[in-house]
Write a protein that binds this DNA or RNA. Structure first.
Lengths: 222, 222
DNA sequence: GCCGGGCTGTATCGCCCTATACGGGATGGC
DNA sequence: GCCATCCCGTATAGGGCGATACAGCCCGGC
């Protein structure tokens, strides 16, 4: 029996910060979402945001021509929806549970009063929003390139940092992503993803083991 | 004498939020930067962030091959550097004053204690980081497209929202940006910017008046 | 065992972007 | 007034990506 193709997210927050948020769970309320239901939708105005406990939530932006850009897959111990909840503007993305999902739902409406008693919670939330800003900015840096290889490698290294295990030949991604998902997240076509991964294999930079991608240790520092 | 080519930023924060931050200026200290000096550099770790009072700051990310992606030009009444200041990780971007610049420098180190007395300041900062996350995410949505026209129009409409004045034929951008700057911000080549703007002119969607771009009112809602 | 669906690997073709180069116009320094 | 510099417009060649189509593979259902 080979490795399970367990669905995982594309995001992780460091333990310490997770704990800091968990400690304030009492300021939110538990809320569950069945598979294929919506947490929030692009365009709506809401002061709610979510701390995912279990399951998987897909965050995407729909472009005006109807095409979908997948921003992230948020797994357990991540926060989503806080951006629009704090700035008060319409949601710029949609969130849908693609597995049965449990969350803590927070509401920013009375948050200022909470901060007075628990200023460390404000700091934690600022760390979360800052982290998100960072990851989006770094993605942007790579999406600014028109080279599919740049775009795809960026996604792979990000996934590696979050979800890879050591392997004799390098680092193995435990997340299973299809070429189509990579295409949606990098703004290229499915065919190009296949071709690019092929090319990377020929360059001996990656390998595929049982459907999982292995990022090889840099072979020679040229 | 025609319109001045005053250099402006690519960013603006709504008045109310600006005031909320200004009211807490006493928690920071005044600091000025001469033209062509650096506020902070990619890679460094720092807990400082800046509220720009006067001048212009260019935020850019340098890619590993040395090429530069210009994220934003931050003019007066904007905040920069807060991302890395709060999450504690190395700066993912560099900031350089491209005009003589005055700022208020804040330090996140003792922020938690400030939040206890002034929880509304935490809320304001959360609004700022959330807004930034939003703008970067929306840029990402468009950069995900490989069509130069998408990328360039996104920049233009964003600039329009922030820095355009009414004009009999539409909205006139008071910011003057060169094709080369547009290229750097959209990840295309200078030639393509010229060609794309040309094409938009032919499609009667924009016009150029005295070096400034005019976004025409949508001609026909088809 | 057989079938069907989802995923990956290829092939072809047309198009558009990048790189490069060059000319002309505006602007500013002296 | 003259020249240098910057910016915009344009041409050419080359390459790689997108669209489309199809074949093979794996896996699960029945």
């Amino acid at each position: 029996m080979a490795m399970t193709k367990k669905k995982l997210g594309t995001w992780r927050i460091e333990r310490q910060l997770v704990e800091q948020i968990s400690e304030h769970a009492s300021f939110g309320r538990r809320r569950t979402f069945k598979k294929n239901t919506v947490l929030y939708e692009q365009g709506e105005v809401s002061t709610r945001f979510y701390f995912v406990l279990k399951g998987l939530v897909q965050i995407s932006i729909f472009r005006s021509d109807g095409s979908e850009v997948v921003l992230e897959l948020m797994g357990p111990e991540t926060v989503c929806g806080e951006g629009s909840a704090f700035d008060g503007l319409p949601r710029f993305s949609s969130a849908a549970a693609i597995e049965d999902t449990e969350t803590i739902e927070f509401d920013t409406a009375k948050m200022t009063e909470v901060f007075r008693e628990h200023p460390e919670f404000a700091t934690s939330l600022l760390r979360v929003t800052s982290l998100k800003q960072r990851v989006v900015a770094i993605r942007l840096k790579h999406l600014a390139s028109r080279e599919p290889q740049d775009r795809i490698l960026e996604l792979l290294t990000r996934l590696e940092e979050m979800f890879a295990i050591d392997h004799p030949k390098g680092r193995l991604l435990v997340t299973h992503v299809t070429h189509e998902q990579i295409a949606a997240m990098t703004g290229t076509s499915r065919v190009t993803v296949t071709r690019t991964l092929q090319r990377l294999r020929e360059q001996n930079r990656i390998d595929t083991i049982d459907g999982h991608i292995l990022l090889k240790r840099k072979p020679a520092p040229e």
